[in-house]
């Protein structure tokens, strides 16, 4: 269906072949790297890298279009709100003030603010391709087996896998309920007042919760009947062996993380890169 946000889909690429755990650790390394650094050069490099990874995984734009739109809306809102609440943040950080033009009242656009906000925008934007890659190329059960492999209890690991597994189902259910409530006259457009919209959202969420609870009872019975939770350990049908590719991916992502820290410590002497002094 056209409404799927993300679903795991198997194709044979180097990224798909990596173990789920490798992908999780690499994802965390790279995310920490860009979250830590406010150096736009580093951020852009990581972004280029993550786009390359996405290409390697043969992810098509049509698969992620909807998600990209959501993220874009979020980022733009975030940028506007940041400017609205602290228009002088950039000046505070970089210690200089180059005005471009005065807008209204306390709002003046400065080069510093523009630079600060651009950096921030790209920081967030560069995490997205990584997240998409992780979600689209990781088999949920294989990921659960990997989590279990590093010591996470298998019940917790399986809960994660089931969440990923049922995500598309819940999405479909959400859409159906939302449409049927719209048919009854529910307005979910942005025209309605905020309080009305919250109230209206409940009209969709309540049926969703109840039908999801039905589903949970069913699946937990099915699992009990097939011996889930009998022993303290379990084996995994979809476990992957750790390969050279995994080692390479881990070393590479660790190196990028270390590199980012080094840039901050030795070159920028702080988290911010300051081109104004």
């Amino acid at each position: 269906m056209s409404t799927k946000l993300f679903t795991y889909n198997f194709i044979d690429t180097p990224i798909h072949r990596l173990s789920g755990l490798t992908k999780l650790i690499a994802f965390l390394f790279l995310t920490f790297a860009v979250m830590f650094s406010y150096d736009i050069r580093v951020v852009l490099l990581v972004m280029a890298f993550s786009l390359w990874v996405m290409r390697l995984a043969k992810i098509k734009f049509s698969q992620i279009r909807l998600m990209v739109i959501y993220v874009a809306v979020f980022l733009i809102t975030n940028t506007v709100i940041t400017f609205f609440f602290s228009p002088e943040e950039g000046v505070k950080i970089y210690g200089t003030r180059h005005e471009i033009f005065h807008i209204i009242g306390p709002y003046t656009l400065t080069v510093e603010q523009l630079f600060y906000q651009t950096t921030k925008l790209f920081k967030y934007a560069s995490v997205i391709p990584l997240g998409i890659c992780f979600l689209l190329t990781t088999n949920p059960s294989e990921f659960a087996s990997a989590l279990n492999g590093v010591g996470v209890h298998y019940k917790a690991a399986y809960a994660v896998s089931l969440t990923l597994r049922y995500f598309p189902d819940i999405q479909r259910e959400y859409r159906n309920i939302s449409l049927s409530q719209q048919a009854r006259g529910l307005d979910i457009s942005h025209k309605a007042k905020f309080t009305t919209r919250v109230k209206n959202a409940l009209l969709i969420i309540i049926p969703l919760v109840f039908s999801t609870l039905d589903r949970i009872e069913l699946i937990s019975n099915a699992m009990d009947l097939r011996g889930f939770g009998k022993h303290r350990k379990r084996s995994w049908y979809s476990r992957k062996k750790f390969t050279k590719g995994d080692v390479f991916a881990l070393v590479l992502s660790a190196a990028i993380f270390a590199g980012t820290i080094c840039v901050s410590v030795f070159i920028n002497h702080g988290r911010f890169y300051n081109p104004f002094i």
């Binding site: 949920p140 097939r226 011996g227 022993h231 084996s235 049908y237």
Partner: peptide, 15 residues
């Protein structure tokens, strides 16, 4: 997530 994996479920729980 696949037919084989589903069939294997009881065996996995039996280690």
């Amino acid at each position: 997530l696949t037919v084989f994996e589903d069939i294997a479920f009881a065996l996995e729980n039996d280690t």
